[in-house]
Amino acid sequence: MQSPANSFILAGGSNVVVGDGGYPGTVVLVRNRGVKVREAEAETVTVTVEAGESWDGVVAQAVESGWSGIECLSGIPGSAGATPIQNVGAYGQEVAETITAVRVLDRTTGERLVMGPEECGFAYRASVFKHNDRWLVLSVDFRLARSPESAPVRYGELARALGVEIGDRVPLADARAAVLALRAGKGMVLDPADPDTRSVGSFFTNPVLEAAAYSAFRERAAELGEPPSWPGSGGVVKVSAAWLIDRAGFTKGYGSGTVGISTKHTLALTHRGGGSTAELLDLAREIRDGVKDRFGVTLHPEPVLVNCEL
C-alpha cells in the first residue's frame, strides 16, 4: 500500500471534484462488494456492508427486507464506504444514527482496525475520515430496526409529501418512493436524460452558526422575512444554504456558460457541457462571496476537492 501522500482512494466519485490537472499520483478504486447479516435479534438486525457496494442498492435491499432506519437516504448516489466519511444525511436521517462500527485500514501503519461511532467523530456532514487520508474504509456495520414501517418522519417536506404529521411512521416502501420523488424533482437522482443531474449534489453545506452570529445574520436578513433554520445542541443554529444563495441573487438556472446552478435546486452546481473544474470553482466562489457580502455568512463546500481548492 502506498503512503497517503501519493495515492488517492476513489469509490463512486459522486461527491468528488477533481482539478483539471487530474491527480498527481495513483488512484485506487474501491470495488469490494457484499452485504451480510452479522447479527439478528428480535427487534434489530446488524448488517455488514462492504465499502464498494452501491449505497442506494443497500437502501433498496433494507426496504425490501423490512429493515428500518435508512429509508430516507434513498436515491443518494455513491458507495456505502463513503457514507461514514461524509456522515451522509437527508430528509431527517443520517448514517451516524445507525452505524455501529467502521472497519478501516490504517494507511500509515498497515493495521486493520474496528472503529466505534465515538471514534468516528461524527458531526454534521463530517467525521474523522473526511479530509484525512489516513484511513481507508473497508466495510460498515449498520444496526437497523426490524420493522415494516419507517422511523418516525422528522422532515417537514417529506411529511407533507406523504400526507402525514411529523413523528408519524409510514410503510418503508412509501417512505422510499416519496424520497425518490422529492429528489428527482430537485435533479438529485441520476438521470441521463436530465442535465440537472450532472452535479455532485449539494455543493455547499448548510451553515451552522453560533448564537451571536445567527443574531447578526437575522438582522441583516430582516427585510426578507424569517429565514429557514433549525436549532442544534449547544445553542447553535443551522441555516438553509439554499435560502442564502437564492436571496443573495443566485437563483435557479443562474449562469450563462458551461456551468451553472441547477434549474431545479439552488444548491446544485451543474455541468452544461464542455466546462472545466476551474469554471465550476469560479462559479462557486462567486456564490460564496456574494452570500458573504450580503449576509455575513460563509458557505463551505460539501464535496471533496482533489488537486483544486475553493
Rank of each mutant, 00 (worst) to 15 (best):
H300L: 15
M1L: 10
F217E: 02
V104H: 02
V236T: 14
A193E: 15
E53K: 01
I70F: 00
V49S: 08
G66L: 12
L136N: 08
A175W: 01
Q2M: 10
L182Q: 02
P303V: 02
V236K: 15
G274V: 04
F217L: 08
A241G: 12
G201A: 10
V45H: 03
T263F: 03
L283K: 10
A151N: 12
I287P: 13
V137P: 02
D246R: 04
A51Y: 06
R183N: 06
Y254V: 03
A278W: 07
E223S: 10
F203D: 04
S202M: 07
L136H: 13
F142N: 00
A284I: 00
L105F: 01
M188Q: 11
T44G: 01
M1H: 05
G57W: 14
G274Y: 07
S233C: 02
E71K: 05
G273F: 03
R143F: 08
G257K: 14
V140A: 09
V239R: 03
T100S: 03
E53Q: 09
I76K: 11
Q61Y: 11
A40Q: 12
V304G: 00
R288T: 04
R285T: 12
E71S: 14
A284Q: 03
P117D: 00
P207E: 09
A175T: 05
T298K: 07
I261N: 01
F203M: 06
L10H: 06
L190W: 13
S199T: 15
V28I: 12
Q93G: 03
A123N: 14
A284C: 13
A242H: 10
V297C: 05
V18H: 04
S262L: 05
D56Q: 06
G273P: 07
V237W: 02
E39F: 11
Y155F: 14
V88S: 15
V140I: 00
V200D: 04
T100C: 01
D141F: 04
E94N: 10
P4H: 05
A222Y: 00
A173N: 07
A161E: 13
R31S: 15
E43F: 11
V259A: 05
T277P: 15
V63S: 06
T48Y: 11
G89D: 15
A268T: 10
T48F: 09
L10F: 10
V179M: 04
L267A: 02
E50K: 11
A222T: 09
D56K: 13
S54I: 07
Q2S: 09
L280T: 09
Y23L: 03
A222R: 14
E43L: 05
